[in-house]
């Protein structure tokens, strides 16, 4: 138990934790949206995120990104990456819904069947990214897929520099960008769900699908919309991940998805603001735990926190419900 280190550099660890948690929160939104409307854990959502990271890498390679470009170019590449990741992730999420979930829903399949299908889809996506694509096109695009199941590095878009220093605590420019953009994306989503006509449809279906249908809400379209929205958020998370960590791997999604789901449950699944809170909370817990013990134990601590929260507060910190987000 290394309390000296934790309290000696408490501010620094908090900043690290928040910037880590922001990415969890963005991925968690995808779980929360789908769960809020369909009561379904989209297990394959983590792979939607991984597809996004590969799309970012692909777009950057295609447009010829070199290490450490100037500020103007960096912003351009951020936008290119965002568009590529959002299209790829949103498209993947939509394809999953059309191909797998919709036929099951028509048949009123029990929840377990949905979950197992999602696990199967997740396996297929991981293998396509990790095995099939490298074999098929790895020779043509070696920087994109490399060898099988290998970690693929990305060019550095923004060099890490301390932006603000308060006492011992240094906030790097990358951390600030990750945190602020994640907050912006979430604020935009929150506005969309709570203030727009489409958002009202989503909330109506979440509250009561039959009544919503009677009031003229097109359920099918709402369901497609939430999958796309969740996918776009995962795409944004993929971009931020690429900026912050600069690598990707086909098997990246498993642990990250589990963490993001934990974050969604922590905050109250189905609750958008809960996902933010849960993500930041989980990020902090992990960084503190890694400081107190070693980083080898952070995953264990994250799962133990999940189990404990579910035991004492099964509806999460803020309570679950997308329908009642703003009645």
């Amino acid at each position: 138990m290394n309390f000296d280190e934790l309290f000696g550099h408490f501010g620094q660890h908090t900043v690290d934790g928040l910037s880590k948690g922001a990415i969890y929160a963005l991925i968690a939104l995808g779980y929360t949206l789908v769960y809020g409307v369909l009561r379904l854990i989209n297990f394959a959502h983590s792979e939607v995120f991984v597809v996004g990271t590969f799309a970012v890498l692909g777009a950057w390679t295609a447009f010829g990104l070199q290490d450490n470009p100037g500020a103007g170019q960096a912003i351009l590449f951020l936008l290119i990456g965002l568009v590529a990741a959002a299209v790829a992730s949103g498209g993947t999420a939509l394809a999953l819904e059309r191909i797998a979930y919709k036929p099951l829903r028509k048949r009123n399949a029990p929840p377990l069947v949905f979950l197992i299908t999602a696990i199967g889809l997740s396996l297929v996506l991981v293998e396509i990214l990790g095995l099939l694509l490298p074999r098929l096109v790895g020779g043509v695009f070696p920087t994109l897929f490399g060898r099988e199941r290998q970690i693929v590095g990305m060019p550095t878009l923004i060099e890490q520099k301390a932006l603000i220093t308060i006492g011992d605590t240094a906030i790097t420019n990358v951390q600030a960008i990750v945190f602020v953009s994640a907050l912006l994306m979430m604020a935009a989503l929150d506005w969309f769900i709570n203030r727009t006509r489409y958002g009202r449809g989503v909330r109506a279906v979440a509250q009561n699908p039959e009544t919503a249908a009677l009031m003229g809400v097109n359920q099918d379209r709402v369901i497609m919309l939430i999958f796309v929205l969740g996918g776009v958020m995962a795409g944004a998370a993929a971009l931020l991940w690429s900026v912050r960590f600069g690598f990707t791997q086909s098997s990246l999604g498993f642990v990250l998805g589990l963490k993001a789901f934990t974050a969604a449950v922590l905050g109250g699944i189905g609750n958008l603001r809960g996902a933010l809170l849960g993500g930041l909370f989980l990020g902090l817990v992990e960084v503190y735990a890694a400081t107190l013990y070693t980083s080898a134990w952070e995953d264990v601590v994250a799962f133990v926190v999940l189990i404990v929260v579910l035991m004492f507060r099964p509806t999460g910190l803020l309570g679950e419900s997308l329908g009642r987000a703003r009645a």
């Binding site: 069947v113 299908t117 199967g120 889809l121 396996l123 297929v124």
Partner: peptide, 20 residues
């Protein structure tokens, strides 16, 4: 055997959709 995971994943989806 290299393709077994993709085959298992695919089999899981197909079995669940066509023959739950």
């Amino acid at each position: 055997s290299d393709y077994r995971w993709v085959a298992f994943g695919f089999a899981m989806v197909v079995v669940m959709v066509l023959r739950p």
